[in-house]
Computed example of a mutant assay.
Amino acid sequence: MIEIERKFLVTSDAYKKESFSQNRIKQGYLSSVSERTVRIRTKGDKAYITIKGVSNETGMSRFEWEKEIPVDEAENLLLLCQKGVIDKTRFEVKIGKHIYEVDEFYGENKGLIVAEIELKYESEPFEKPNWLGQEVTNDNRYYNSNLSINPFTNWD
């Protein structure tokens, strides 16, 4: 139940040609305090509730619990979420033995494209595709819960 993840900015749209899957995602937060986030997400024809704990010092690891819920319940819960529902398309790209999840954001986060990779342990080696840019793993501004409160288009 520990999520180990690294985040990177994306420098080109080459990932789109390499992707094997894409889904529109809408997600909101019932709680976005730093000690815990409670997220509601619809992804295609499925929906989930997710609880995440605080990140460790590196920003790579944190507790995560997720459960699938009925889509109609998720849509009702999204109405209760804090202002700033995230709207994005997620592209999945297999590079080596890992899958990158590349999120292209819309609305107030338009222009932001972030790639995430989940690892088995923090120092696990992985291949970096040529469209992968600066690492932003430890930059809290790129957490979706923070993007819902302080959108990318509001940054200086």
Results as ranks from 00 to 15, higher is better:
residue 90 R to A: 12
residue 93 V to W: 00
residue 86 I to H: 00
residue 97 K to Y: 06
residue 79 L to K: 15
residue 99 I to M: 04
residue 87 D to R: 00
residue 99 I to T: 13
residue 80 L to I: 14
residue 84 G to S: 12
residue 94 K to I: 08
residue 86 I to R: 00
residue 80 L to N: 08
residue 96 G to N: 10
residue 73 E to N: 14
residue 93 V to Q: 01
residue 86 I to F: 11
residue 97 K to I: 14
residue 80 L to F: 04
residue 89 T to R: 11
residue 92 E to V: 12
residue 102 V to H: 06
residue 78 L to G: 02
residue 91 F to T: 07
residue 86 I to A: 01
residue 84 G to V: 13
residue 84 G to C: 12
residue 102 V to W: 00
residue 99 I to D: 02
residue 92 E to M: 12
residue 88 K to I: 07
residue 85 V to W: 03
residue 78 L to D: 01
residue 81 C to P: 00
residue 91 F to S: 10
residue 89 T to M: 11
residue 102 V to K: 07
residue 88 K to N: 08
residue 83 K to P: 07
residue 76 N to M: 11
residue 101 E to S: 13
residue 92 E to L: 13
residue 100 Y to W: 09
residue 94 K to Y: 03
residue 102 V to P: 01
residue 77 L to A: 04
residue 85 V to E: 04
residue 86 I to C: 03
residue 86 I to P: 00
residue 101 E to V: 05
residue 99 I to V: 15
residue 73 E to R: 13
residue 78 L to W: 00
residue 86 I to S: 03
residue 75 E to H: 06
residue 77 L to F: 08
residue 79 L to V: 13
residue 83 K to N: 14
residue 79 L to C: 14
residue 78 L to E: 03
residue 96 G to F: 09
residue 76 N to E: 15
residue 99 I to A: 09
residue 101 E to P: 02
residue 97 K to L: 11
residue 83 K to F: 07
residue 86 I to T: 02
residue 90 R to E: 05
residue 89 T to A: 09
residue 91 F to L: 05
residue 90 R to Y: 06
residue 89 T to C: 10
residue 85 V to P: 02
residue 88 K to T: 08
residue 87 D to L: 02
residue 73 E to G: 09
residue 87 D to H: 03
residue 93 V to H: 04
residue 87 D to P: 04
residue 88 K to D: 05
residue 100 Y to Q: 10
residue 82 Q to W: 05
residue 83 K to T: 14
residue 91 F to Y: 15
residue 102 V to M: 08
residue 93 V to F: 00
residue 86 I to G: 01
residue 95 I to R: 05
residue 80 L to M: 13
residue 92 E to I: 09
residue 87 D to E: 10
residue 83 K to L: 12
residue 89 T to V: 15
residue 96 G to V: 14
residue 87 D to M: 03
residue 85 V to Y: 07
residue 78 L to P: 05
residue 81 C to W: 00
residue 80 L to K: 06
residue 87 D to T: 02
residue 94 K to D: 06
residue 93 V to G: 07
residue 90 R to V: 12
residue 80 L to H: 07
residue 94 K to V: 12
residue 91 F to E: 06
residue 90 R to L: 08
residue 100 Y to P: 09
residue 97 K to E: 13
residue 98 H to L: 15
residue 87 D to F: 02
residue 86 I to N: 02
residue 96 G to C: 11
residue 85 V to R: 02
residue 74 A to P: 05
residue 98 H to R: 13
